[in-house]
Amino acid sequence: MKVLYFAWLRTRAGLSEAEVSPPPGVTDVAGLIEWLKGQGEGHAAALGEPRLVRVAVNQVHVGPDHPLKPGDEVAFFPPVTGGGAAGGGR
């Protein structure tokens, strides 16, 4: 299973991607996040604020209960900020 990090999750993790092999007990996104937190400081730092973490599986936005299977590409990132203008005008 491939795990990707983007934006500040990537800088916190200190890596942009990792190949991981979670145990059979990890069956969904929420389970993967919990397991990854125990797989080194980088993963733990990236996923430390779950409220700010968005997830895509195989390049489609999903929720925490989305099921996972071997070979999936799982991306973690903050809420997106594309489009015009540089951030908030406040």
Binding site: F6, P78, P79, V80, T81, G82, A86
Partner: peptide, 20 residues
């Protein structure tokens, strides 16, 4: 703006920061 996976990082005199 709320769905496409883009993220902005701004550079200011104080350094770089990710846009929320």
């Amino acid at each position: 703006k709320t769905k496409a996976p883009f993220w902005k990082q701004e550079e200011t005199a104080d350094g770089a920061r990710w846009v929320e």
